[in-house]
């Protein structure tokens, strides 16, 4: 298996199937948190870590526990609980280890449990059938790569959007459109722009 597979997986998850704009995952933090650029980057960092580790864990659980016992129908409950436990562990670890790190990332961790992007990417990795295509072990690498790409795409969009939001604050918007409605229109235009990237891979 050549390294291009990983590269393609990252690019396609980041730009062509962008989690926020084209797959509608993680719209809540996208609309809510991304007001200042640093906030957006902090959120992006926390999401990247949890998304990659969470995808790897859920992938392993699916193919080494659920499938051998033929109990894939409980995957939803297993995935959400594993991801939520992971978030708790990470938060606890950061609390104990470093004040600075907690200040930078820890405050976004509770937000992540209900972030549909994490669970959505974990589910998508299973549904894309990487294990059937590349074998279970190499499929794990592809799944991790696409989770990383998805997280990069999330960070990219949330960061770009925070910059636009700063300009929007100063714009003269009709009262009814202020806040979330105009943000959604902006997101729609961004989604149109991302549609143009469809042909790269």
């Amino acid at each position: 298996m050549s390294p291009t597979v990983f590269f393609v997986a990252i690019i396609s998850a980041m730009l062509i199937n962008n989690v926020v704009l084209l797959r509608f995952l993680g719209v809540c933090p996208f609309l809510g948190v991304s007001k200042r650029s640093e906030t957006a980057l902090g959120m992006g960092g926390a999401v990247t870590f949890v998304m990659v580790v969470g995808s790897v864990l859920t992938y392993l659980i699916y193919y080494y526990v659920l499938e051998p016992f033929e109990i894939t129908y409980i995957s939803t409950i297993a995935f959400i609980l594993v991801i939520a436990s992971l978030v708790q562990l990470v938060e606890m670890f950061i609390k104990k280890v470093s004040k600075k790190l907690y200040k930078a990332l820890g405050i976004y961790l509770p937000l992540i449990v209900t972030n549909c992007a994490i669970l959505g990417v974990a589910e998508t990795n299973i549904r894309e059938g990487y294990a059937e295509e590349f074998g279970v072990m190499s499929g794990l690498g592809v799944a991790a790569a696409s989770a990383f790409g998805a997280a990069l795409g999330f960070t990219l969009v949330i960061f770009a959007f925070s910059s636009i939001r700063e300009r929007l604050e100063a714009a003269n918007v009709p009262a009814a459109w202020k806040g979330i409605p105009i943000s959604l229109i902006v997101a729609g235009i961004m989604a149109l722009a991302f549609l143009g990237l469809e042909g790269i891979v």
Partner: peptide
């Protein structure tokens, strides 16, 4: 498509 979803909800 996705863009339409954002715009209609907005």
């Amino acid at each position: 498509g996705p863009a339409g979803g954002f715009i209609v909800i907005g």
